[in-house]
Design a protein around this nucleic acid. Structure first.
Length: 275
DNA sequence: AGGTAAACCTGGACGC
DNA sequence: TGCGTCCAGGTTTACC
């Protein structure tokens, strides 16, 4: 489900409900998601306070004095803050129960993930989980710019879309936003990354940043089922120009958008406007 | 090493 | 209504 804007929307929605709260208990209804949930989640979290809710790439980190719970939503994961009495539904895999002022559990952070491509991992204080060690720069940071993309793309024959979706190159950009940024930049997603010049990478970097920022403003993209923790849908979907519009007219030139598969992912672009 | 395809899993949409 | 097929916002893993 989520790319950077959806994960950031989730973070912003969760933070006010979680910040400073003490964890009473962790309920694991299913011991494994994509990977087994480590014992430390149930052993270390109870009693700790959530000091911050951070995001790195598409991972969310619930930071405590002992370490951080690391959550990835995969394709279908959702986090919600709910009253503790909320009935459990299918695929509600984990509850983190939170204490209120009266010392009683008065809210629960619930992780639901039908496809179980998501994960819940433990990162001891002062360490970086191995999955986070190979990640590239944040796309909204200074480190991500035309110089960087140009340098990392040299010698690469794979399509530029594949490069942009490689989390070792830059994090947070998935199928929707790679498709949209390349449309906006006028660059064909199929073009070999190493055969694109500095000027066009400047455009690509700027469009990625512009589109991600706007999508965050809009609360992310809701295609089927993405909801922020407060249940509100993201409304960037209405601004998509290419993703999901295969066969429909290009908004710039009117010609039908082409849809193919690049690196196993469905890809839409305009053969006239993107070169 | 870089590049590609399969694998993981469930549910919804669609065609017959 | 039911069944088979295809598709989906991600990422690792195995293999050329």
């Amino acid at each position: 489900m989520p790319e950077l804007p959806e994960v950031e929307t989730t973070r912003q929605g969760l933070a006010p409900h979680l910040h400073g709260r003490q964890i009473a208990e962790v309920v694991l209804r299913r011991p494994d998601l994509r990977w087994p949930i480590p014992r430390e989640i149930a052993l270390q979290l109870p009693g700790e306070r959530i000091l911050a809710v951070q995001r790195r790439a598409k991972y969310l980190l619930l930071e405590t004095a002992a370490g951080a719970a690391v959550v990835h939503l995969g394709m279908s994961g959702k986090l919600s803050v709910l009253p503790p009495s909320t009935p459990v539904r299918p695929h509600d895999h984990v509850d983190i129960r939170l204490l209120g002022r009266g010392g009683r559990v008065d809210a629960v952070l619930r992780f639901n993930d039908p496809r179980r491509f998501g994960c819940l991992l433990w990162q001891p204080l002062g360490t970086v989980h191995p999955l986070l060690q190979t990640l590239g720069p944040e796309p909204l940071s200074e480190a991500f710019n035309a110089d960087y993309l140009f340098q990392r793309s040299r010698g690469r024959r794979a399509p530029v879309k594949t490069l942009l979706m490689d989390q070792r190159i830059v994090v947070g950009v998935g199928n929707i936003y790679a498709t949209e940024a390349l449309f906006a930049a006028g660059v064909s997603p199929a073009r070999a990354a190493g055969r694109i010049g500095h000027v066009r990478y400047d455009r690509i970097a700027q469009e990625i940043q512009r589109i991600l920022r706007k999508a965050i403003q809009r609360g992310g993209t809701t295609l089927r089922d993405f909801l922020a923790p407060d249940g509100v849908a993201g409304y960037f979907a209405q601004e998509l120009s290419a993703y999901g519009r295969g066969g429909k007219p290009c908004q710039r030139c009117g010609r039908a958008l082409r849809q193919t598969v690049i690196a196993n992912r469905s890809t839409v672009w305009c053969v006239d406007c993107q070169r």
